[in-house]
């Protein structure tokens, strides 16, 4: 787009300033993870590695991370299957009630988390009489993760068109063979991107989780919530946060690489 140099510079500056504001609190967290102050006062009074050492020995934190990983993997798997099925149905067919179904998919993310949380809490406990456990968390998470997979897959299906699938069917391939050899390979990177987002969404969710987790189930956000107001635990929470952000660079970079290489191929 033809823009004046002044406009370009102004836009670039605004972008840089906003990104700086986005990263300052994260840098404060990084600084706090090395600070000798347990009440997170600024500027940090001194430097210590104590919290980093304690964080990697904290059994509570490690257990919480593994619980969160299990919840996120299972919910993502469920969301991948259900999200793909429903995108295929909505993109490849037109039928009565199609708009209602697509509203139904986005509803769990469009309604505030507290609504999903209290509705499921009420459903499990009061109505079904099922005790809350890790599986009630998985059911809740999978429900709102479907939409991220759905968004990515349906966008890809729209771009793909149906020519290749029809060609495959004309050449005698059955429904399943066509999906396996023609549709799925084209969907793969969309599934990866949607799956990553679903994983991230589940891994970080706190509101629905507090309403659906059984008493013994401590996901990482629950662990953080329970510990961040304790003076000796707050810096450990800061360490965990720093580690998570650094680790997250890998999947985001991969997802970007994948979608980038696909764009150039097209």
């Amino acid at each position: 787009m033809r823009l004046g140099t002044a406009t370009r510079i102004a836009l670039g500056t605004v972008t840089a300033v906003i990104l700086a504001i986005v990263y300052i609190p994260l840098l404060v967290v990084l600084a706090n993870s090395f600070s000798t102050s347990t009440s997170l006062s600024w500027p940090p009074p001194g430097f210590t590695l104590e919290w980093w050492a304690r964080a990697f020995q904290s059994e509570g934190a490690l257990d919480a991370i593994s619980t969160s990983v299990v919840v996120a993997i299972v919910s993502t798997a469920v969301a991948l299957v259900l999200g793909t099925l429903i995108s295929l149905a909505l993109q490849r067919f037109s039928f009565f009630g199609r708009d209602a179904v697509s509203l139904l998919v986005i509803l769990p993310i469009a309604l505030p988390g507290i609504i999903t949380g209290i509705a499921l809490n009420n459903f499990f406990r009061t109505i079904l009489g099922v005790p809350l456990s890790i599986w009630t968390v998985v059911i809740a998470h999978a429900t709102f993760c479907i939409v991220t997979v759905f968004n990515n897959v349906i966008a890809r299906l729209r771009r793909m068109g149906i020519n290749l699938e029809e060609a495959s069917a004309d050449l005698g391939a059955g429904v399943w063979t066509t999906f396996r050899l023609v549709t799925f390979p084209q969907l793969r990177s969309a599934l990866l991107a949607g799956g990553l987002l679903a994983f991230a969404l589940s891994f970080d969710e706190i509101i629905v989780t507090t309403f659906t987790a059984g008493s013994g189930v401590t996901t990482l956000p629950i662990f953080i919530l329970n510990n961040m107001f304790r003076p000796n635990q707050a810096p450990i929470v800061a360490v965990i946060a720093v580690v998570l952000v650094v680790v997250s660079i890998v999947p985001i970079y991969l997802a970007q690489r994948l979608s980038g290489s696909e764009q150039t191929r097209r």
Binding site: V22, Y23, I24, P25, L26, V28, V29, N32, L40, S41, W42, A200, D204, I206, L220, P221, I224, L225, M228, A234, V237, A238, I240, A241, L244, V245, V247, S248, I249, I252
Partner: peptide
Amino acid sequence: LMPLWASYLVKAYAWRSV
């Protein structure tokens, strides 16, 4: 995208200290 991976709670808490 990266700040999305930092926990929601940690970001809220970071603002508490900011």
